[in-house]
Design a protein around this nucleic acid. Sequence first.
DNA 1: CTATATAATTGGAACGTTCCAAAAAGGTCA
DNA 2: TGACCTTTTTGGAACGTTCCAATTATATAG
Lengths: 345, 345
Amino acid sequence: MSRNRTSIVDIARAAGVSKSTVSLVLQKSPLVSESTREKVNAHINDLGYIYNRGAASLRQSRSKIVGIVVNDLTNSFFAELAVGMDMVVQSAGYVQFLAHSGESVDRQREVISSMRENGIAGLILSPARGTESSDIKALVESGIPVVVVVRNLPGAKVSTLLSDNYAGAKAAVRHLIELGHQRIAFMGGFQDTAVFGERLRGYRDALQDADIPADERFIIHSAPSRAGGVAALERLIGIAERPSAALCLNDAVAFGVCDGLRANGLEPGKSFAIIGFDDVIEAKTAVPALTTVSVDPQGMGQRAAQLLLKQINSGQNDQESIVTSVRLVVRQSCGAPVKQPEEMA
Amino acid sequence: MSRNRTSIVDIARAAGVSKSTVSLVLQKSPLVSESTREKVNAHINDLGYIYNRGAASLRQSRSKIVGIVVNDLTNSFFAELAVGMDMVVQSAGYVQFLAHSGESVDRQREVISSMRENGIAGLILSPARGTESSDIKALVESGIPVVVVVRNLPGAKVSTLLSDNYAGAKAAVRHLIELGHQRIAFMGGFQDTAVFGERLRGYRDALQDADIPADERFIIHSAPSRAGGVAALERLIGIAERPSAALCLNDAVAFGVCDGLRANGLEPGKSFAIIGFDDVIEAKTAVPALTTVSVDPQGMGQRAAQLLLKQINSGQNDQESIVTSVRLVVRQSCGAPVKQPEEMA
DNA sequence: CTATATAATTGGAACGTTCCAAAAAGGTCA
DNA sequence: TGACCTTTTTGGAACGTTCCAATTATATAG
């Protein structure tokens, strides 16, 4: 039942000054003389005063809270993304509401509305599958800066930060082709996300550029998770003229595919080449180390947060769309001829 | 920049009632007549009114925000823990500040103090390594309920929710002994955490109960991460009379140990038995599926959140210590046939 | 129709801050 | 000394809610 905490007027009384002066001290205003500043600060420590940010933002109608909504925290890509955001948000003196939508648009809506009630200064949203631009229309119109990350949200008048999914997927498939693969699968993900679409487009175009005919049976949908990867592989195994390589929607799927291969007595990276997408931390240490398209989730989180803070501070939210470049990191899971067996670095 | 949003008095004016009445409608008070309730609600929707929770909690000096501090979000154990908390917190109408201390006590201190300024109703803390009970003393004394999870914080007058590390470790080692193993290692973790201490104690006691002499060389410290597991295994490999099995501090370490074994041409679950701890989601689908002590992180998060909410609502924070029971889940990674030491050399 | 109970509504103070205009306190100079 | 700066300090209104006591409207009984 939080007993009444000491307020600005308590310390004003104790220090024998007005509450206005105490307020000035708190905001480190140069208007207050050195001597009173010290006196006031002494009493602040003395009484164990705690600043009430809620009251402050009520008055100035601007808060130091940002909302972050992520669709799946248990996916390490998003966890790292969140950590990156956390870093810059915290050090800018903000604090974050971090919520997990679990891919549910209903949940997402509730969460966003709750954040609005709590007066966020801005929002970073990695939209749940099926999110419509209308879902955040009201928020945007109320003048609160919004940055959409990872997944595109067509039609929304907001800033976005996406990785170059198309180029990354294309580079990955080109690499597999250069390694001599002709039958290449695309595994994991569902039709209706922009990320899936872009990566698939990169896959298709790379095949086309190499004059390899597309085989629709090689495109295998599944949940974008490790378990999904296992399931996808099971379906792939059934195909008569089985592919020899796959680009996976993300690293989680890629790991699942590795698991599935082993369960079927195949060795990932030897009997079947795999490339992931995202470059989560485990990609480097896994065995075989995962060849993947690195999108640096933590860095991306940082950039997203910076973008948001810039908009909050400038007050003008002109929409800005950033596509961050990606980089193919060749490790062992694609069976590249670069054989450096004992390279533990 | 948030332009002046519409307030309770705006809708009062529009509906031709007093702001008090609107307030009553908002809190679903039975005192207001059906007809005016409808009228007011209509105007609320009409004007796109958004409740200002900050103003409300200023007045009633009790907020709907809980703080959650977790030491490492990129570790899926903690990510799942956070998701579990999120679920119950959200559905109780609260919203959460979720922060990541990254095992830094300084960071943790900043974060907690920032949460206090923002007026949290309670805090769930998974303390960073090296946290002292004095670090949360002020918070506790101010009457804000605190629940400490996962790691113990001796001396703090707070409720705690821990898993039964001792019993879990003991059961795991007993299982390995029953499988015929005599040389059993304990891998991963650092001396100074309570979790490490408890699990190690379970390990020691299980060995002692079976009259197996302890060998201090078999206790291998490392970071509690996948990379740490790889490193730990490298050190284990060097030991002359190498163990044939290991209990790992957690699943992340166990996966790292698997990686390391493969890199050394050994097959986890065949040439070497491994048991993890935590039962993160990937444990089930990994190859080999990981035998592990299940602590159900998500469920634990839920229980922690429920405990906190109970304390917030009852107003009395009598400290309560819950030890959640754990369960050994036998999968494939421990299925090693027993080998005599000379065969291993 | 009055008296009385009950239901519904309301004004205003309060929560802890910021911000503004205005006042007080010092200095400087003629 | 008074006039005029400059530097500090200060009341009081505001932010959007809740809560209380008090008021008004409505129903019920005599």
